[in-house]
Design a protein around this nucleic acid. Structure first.
Lengths: 155, 155
DNA sequence: GTCTATTAGTTCCCTAAAGGAACTGATAGG
DNA sequence: CCTATCAGTTCCTTTAGGGAACTAATAGAC
């Protein structure tokens, strides 16, 4: 099918989706985050088509989310690692985990747990305001146009 | 194309993607969140195909993320609203906005600004630990298997 | 020195999903 | 009666995902 490109929209959600909105991309990132970072490992872990995996990895590397590096020269072998930009995307994954745990996990409970280094406890993420540190959520904010609100055509 | 269903995986990211991972779904939710909540409004605002929009809305209603309600009986007219489950998804959108603002907005600055009701300031979300309230991020947590870690086949 | 295994992809065909335009149904207003 | 509005549905074309087979580079086994 054809697919509309989101990258040119004046919307940070659309631009983020342009980078990781394709099917499988968030799951690929998750795997690399937890150390499953070689082609065959990722492919087997997810059951993703090799063709699609190759496309996703190339896109994510081209968009500076992943770094491809040689871990063995002869024969040439590569693994993938999160860049700073990619590591910051894990925040999106953590909030998706929180939502999935709350609304889809059912009686079995969450498939994964997260232990916070700072306090050592099993916990989950909450969203707070960067200014006042109080909780921030959908019903707690007003949305206003910002400086980049004009629709810009890409060069 | 065929597409692998993520809903059966023992992974909260996959399950969340099963609900809002299709192309356009997060943007549809965003629009409804900001009050663009009727079929033609959404279609024109996003430039999405009417066919795909109808499919997405039906899916989101069937998955309890949106509620479809009649706002006019004769002729029959409908609008969409976030359920509690859908309102909670806005957290994912807010973190995507934060990432997009930081990594894709460029010199123009963010397209949208968010004012926090509690403090009245323009701000953005940060992720904190639900137990100790300190910042929580990719390099700050350990991932452990949880009670729902077994792969379950759906009934 | 050939045979097999491993890793990281690429190539091919098939099917299903997205785009887009036209069409439908219900009704109000001019 | 004619047109407009809203909320979709239908139909056709294009393209992306699934899956299996294949390639390249090399190490180690026999």
């Amino acid at each position: 099918m054809q697919r509309t490109q989101f990258g040119d929209m004046a919307c940070s959600i659309a631009r983020t989706l342009d980078v990781i909105g394709e099917p499988w991309s968030p799951l690929v990132l998750r795997n690399i985050y937890v150390g499953i970072n070689r082609f065959d490992q990722i492919q087997q872990s997810l059951g993703i088509s090799r063709k699609v995996l190759a496309e996703r990895l190339k896109w994510l590397v081209d968009n500076d989310v992943l770094e491809r590096r040689e871990y063995n020269a002869r024969p040439p072998r590569y693994e993938y690692a999160l860049t700073a930009k990619g590591t910051d995307l894990v925040a999106v994954l953590m909030v998706m985990v929180r939502w999935g745990d709350r609304w889809t996990a059912g009686d079995a409970g969450p498939p994964m747990l997260y232990r916070h280094h700072t306090c050592g406890q099993i916990s989950h993420v909450e969203l707070h305001c960067s200014v006042c540190d109080q909780p921030m959520h959908a019903r707690n904010v007003d949305v206003l146009p910002g400086p980049g609100a004009q629709v810009q055509e890409r060069a």
